[in-house]
């Protein structure tokens, strides 16, 4: 038999335990929300630092000069000039070259994996191709600078030791797995009934792929291209190492060109004192870069959602 006192004690103990449990139950969601909120704070932090310093930059340099001039000469003592166009040009040229590699190779790789390869071959090939995506970009930079550029110089005599062509090509190789893997996902989700229907009508496999599967998966495929472009725009180390730091406003990819990302690296590693125009220009360029990539990413999501065929 239990004594009356011990029952009372037990009840009290139970109450105590319940109240501490209920405190924990109430505290946990708050703590977890704080953790989740840090990712929102990160975005707010990025946007605010970029906006504030960019505004300070535009107090010293006019927006018109920044977006319409063609000369970027931040270090000139006599007459420094700040225009982002040479950097946008550099970014655009390397990105175009990269996508000229990544889109055809990535898409055909996806077609092979999704439509032609046997299950066994796909299981082996896919992870191997994805290894390419796991290699740090600094390694690609080393590869572009010490191997691809010297090899290309044998073929193209006028090629400078730092140029836009070689990092563009290497960046394209880096993006292949991204395009291939996302496009393959899109193609794999096209139902087999559609393929079988086309085959039954007498189409060859090639015709099935290009007339049925690719059109049906086009939203995912285009989204993968757009994400690839965004990746190429934001890529830093390959272009910093292999494309040099000449702020050229030119279409000539055999010459050194600086991208937006490479400019940021150059300025930050040059110890620009806080408060100088060069220092603020860093944020204006980063802001432009951020807006470009964010737009691309949102566009990709919009395309894959808006134009997705649901079966």
């Amino acid at each position: 038999m239990l004594k009356a006192g011990s029952v009372k004690e037990m009840i009290q103990q139970k109450k105590k335990a319940t109240s501490s449990t209920s405190v924990i139950e109430k505290a946990v969601p708050v703590l977890l929300f704080t953790a989740a909120f840090i990712s929102v704070l990160t975005t707010i932090g990025i946007v605010f630092t970029l906006i504030i310093e960019t505004i300070l930059f535009f107090r010293q340099v006019s927006i018109a000069e920044f977006f319409s001039g063609t000369v970027l000469r931040p270090l000139s003592r006599v007459e420094p000039q700040y225009s982002i166009l040479p950097l946008i040009m550099g970014t655009m040229m390397t990105t175009i070259i990269a996508m000229l590699v990544a889109i055809p190779v990535g898409l055909t790789t996806a077609v092979y994996l999704s439509e032609y390869a046997s299950t066994g071959a796909r299981k082996v090939l896919k992870p191997m191709i994805e290894v390419l995506a796991g290699i740090p970009t600094i390694v690609y930079g080393f590869f572009a600078f010490t191997f691809v550029t010297p090899v290309l110089r044998e073929v193209i005599p006028g090629l400078a030791s730092t140029n836009a062509l070689s990092p563009g090509l290497v960046m394209g190789i880096m993006i292949i797995p991204m395009v291939a893997s996302l496009s393959e996902d899109a193609m794999s989700s096209v139902p087999n009934a559609m393929r079988e229907g086309a085959l039954a009508m007498g189409c060859t496999k090639f015709e099935v792929t290009f007339r049925v599967v690719i059109p049906a998966a086009i939203s995912g495929i285009i989204a993968s291209f757009v994400l690839g472009i965004s990746r190429a725009i934001g890529e830093t180390m390959i272009v910093t190492i292999a494309s040099g730091s000449t702020k050229n406003f030119t279409f000539d990819v055999t010459q050194s060109m600086q991208t937006m990302t490479a400019y940021i690296v150059e300025v930050t590693s040059g110890d620009a004192a806080a408060g100088t125009t060069i220092y603020y220009s860093l944020y204006a360029v980063a802001m432009t870069l951020f807006v470009f990539t964010l737009t691309m990413n949102m566009l990709a999501r919009y395309i894959s959602r808006r134009f997705r065929e649901v079966y």
Binding site: T42, T43, T49, L50, A286, L289, L294
Partner: peptide, 17 residues
């Protein structure tokens, strides 16, 4: 959405942050 967007922000922008 915020996490999806952060995943697409270039690493160099995090460096600036």
């Amino acid at each position: 959405t915020n996490i999806a967007n952060l995943a697409g922000v270039p690493s160099i922008v995090f460096g600036i942050l």
